[in-house]
Amino acid sequence: MADAHVSPAKYVWIWVWLAGLMLLGVALSEWPILPLPRPMIVLTVLGLSTVKAVLVAWYYMHLKFDRRWLIGVAAFPLLLLALAVLLGLSSVLVKL
């Protein structure tokens, strides 16, 4: 019970951040708020999603309070995914 000292208010604050970041992502993709090219908007929106995912994993899934190497268990498949994407992209670039 690693998170016994976290107050419910903290969880509510994380929820506020999650909802806010979600609305920011929707606003950025739907309205021309930032004078950026579309690929940069796409990267920004996906970056916001990554921040939300980290917030959920860090606080709601209690990774912040768990053993550090448990983060490795969660991150290892993501590293494999990154490797697969890089290999895929490299094969696309070679064809070009």
Partner: peptide, 22 residues
């Protein structure tokens, strides 16, 4: 049970922008 539920939430956090927004 919560670990599983939050994982399902995280998956949607990525599916939503990929399918609906960008």
């Amino acid at each position: 049970s919560g670990l599983y539920w939050h994982f399902v939430d995280i998956v949607w956090i990525f599916l939503f922008p990929l399918l609906y927004l960008i």
